[in-house]
Design a protein around this nucleic acid. Sequence first.
DNA 1: CAGTGAGCGAGCTTCCGCTTGACTT
Length: 783
Amino acid sequence: MKKNLVIVESPAKAKTIERFLGKDYHVMSSYGHIRDLKKKDFSVDIENNFTPIYEIPDDKKKVVAELKAAAKQAETVWLASDEDREGEAISWHLFDALGLKDDNTKRIVFHEITDTAIHRAIETPRKIDKNLVDAQQARRVLDRIVGFELSPVLWRKIKPALSAGRVQSVAVRLIVEREREIQQFNSESAYRIIAIFTKKEGGESFEVKAEYNKRLKTKEEALALLEKLKSSLFSIEDVTVKPARKSPAAPFTTSTLQQEASRKLGFSVAQTMSVAQRLYESGKITYMRTDSVNLSGLAINTAKAEVTQLYGPEYVKVRQYTTKSKGAQEAHEAIRPTYIQNSAIDGTAQEKKLYDLIWKRTVASQMADAQLEKTTALIDISNDKGKFVANGEVLKFDGFLRVYLEGTDDEDAEVTDGILPPLTQGEALDMRETIATQRFTQRPPRYTEASLVRKLEELGIGRPSTYAPTISTIQNREYVEKRSLEGEQRPYNVLALKNGKLKDTDKTETFGADKNKLVPTDIGMVVTDFLMESFPSILDYNFTADVEKDFDKIAEGKTQWNKSIADFYKVFHPIVEEVSQTHTEHKAGERILGSDPKTGRQVSVKIGRYGAVAQIGSSEEEEKPLFAPLQKTQSIETITLEETLKLFDLPRTVGTFRDKDVVAAVGRFGPYLRHDGKFVSLPKGIDPLEVLLEEAIELIEAKEKKDREKTIKTFPEEPGLQVLNGRYGPYITFEKKNYKIPKNQEPSELTLDRCRQIIAEATDGTTKKKKTTRKTTAKKTKK
DNA sequence: CAGTGAGCGAGCTTCCGCTTGACTT
């Protein structure tokens, strides 16, 4: 047995460190926290000074047993969990749960996994910092109190199985508030006026595009200006040339990686993390859950060498970045390639793409600024006070842009002209054409997963390890949905002046279309409104930042953690009590819309067991109430009495066809028709309340035809195997599984043997994959 | 990825942070 046992948090880290430390050290991993508050019950003893009740979760028992056995045999145990609040707590829990002894246990920390950093750490051990541990306990207990006291209130007032918490509830609030801003947004329009001037020089003709330095509110003003311009003379009043620079972005943190992967590769936040995890486990990148932009000295030197070799020394600029984000704990390095000299790797397409992004970002971060020259020309109008302004931008030295430019979320970035022709003061220009276009102000953008992460990080809410899970939680609870919304059409006006003639055209454009954006559901809105009304302090955007200040005081030893929690509880708990006791007759968010003209019974909408629902009558009445779910496009906030009553007209019998009823209804997946036991989805734009029998029959027959065409081939000797035509083209189906048909294969010419071969090849591939993963896990358990 | 199509009165939901799991013998 080896003399030294080192315990780190991650197994991939353990492997690397063992290489650096040599044969006297055995490095094992705790796989994160090994103890937590008991999963069941409140598990914070309020009466007893908020004593936490910890347990080792079932899936951690084995790890703890193995660590315990190894610790017993070791002369010295080195606790090397991360140097942050959570890491310190992990060490403390390990110390306690493994029954370690003070005299042969040492606490060490390092921020980067390099040979020197680790050896330096071993030379400078310390004791566990109990104050920092207490700060973590305070954090943990506070989150439990908030989560486990608020959630049950929601179960009672709104719907079972809902949840609230310090992080998730604020995330939902951001989305709800943004949606309301969008709803209330009134766009205003103004005319943007752009002229194209020409200049002749030495037989060559140049174009200069310039914008009028004012936007004009009304069509009258725009027309008046164009009218005036008919007789204007134009000349260059002034030309200024200014140098400008652009600097590269800092190396990736978890949040910036998620944003860039979303913008440039279209990855979801969860997808980015799982691809990054694979890159990390195979040793290709450094740790992917980090809030630090710091690079190790070694990494900087390698990047420098790489840039010099690839692009030349003039492209090098060594830079140290500092973290701006609130509450960063910087236990790790920034996310970078482990070996920067590898500009590409083997792997899946996704792995390659993400690695490429990380490589470029890292290398660019150590490169020179890009140098630009910005030219602004002011063009005088002889008979008007306004000016035309032409902007040109020339790249003098590309610097880091040669490798990488950070993406933006800005959907309509300014159009800047590339290069301006040489212009001299006083010189006259001819106007070729002027176009005044009616432009509308833009509503605020909806959040994407990645832009929500950015906002949370900005507010100091959540941690690199929780951004992705938080995004899934608020979707799983059905507080928000990722949706694509169709835009609306709106008219706009274009006025053009050319050759002294004015043309007035009305055009239409689509606006407000959105793809894959986070949109609140009715549940999300009702829960947020309720929490905002009853617990505004918890939903405050500064709540986390404020409690973090308390945690810092605990970490500095200036406050007792239980005292800090007691102060919070003293204020918080009575509000919970009060809110739960004010027994509202109606559920939160319920709206009473009026009465049903047929029966006189009350018509209302609320959040039901399965989401938003309309109701006629109430449960107190003898006659049972009627229920109907709201449609996807409707909201309990805005639905009217008429719209609500209409919902009860479904399911509706449209008529009969081949002696069978045709029924229109709305199901989980939208409106549909049912006929003779078969279902036909109604296409967009056809209302189940209005659909005519003829239309319905047409749709049913079309579906029947499609079904007939669906089957390309069947085989009498193997009825379970079929060649079908699906949404994404032909495929083979067999025993509930589907198989892709090779590109060069004509589906109608498939034989049974060939099908079996395709299936065999496909299944062979998957079992192979499974086998390799099993091998690696087997290896792990072996040691 | 390959197709779906209720119900709205009974008993258990829930937090945030660390980490990687993986049932065929």
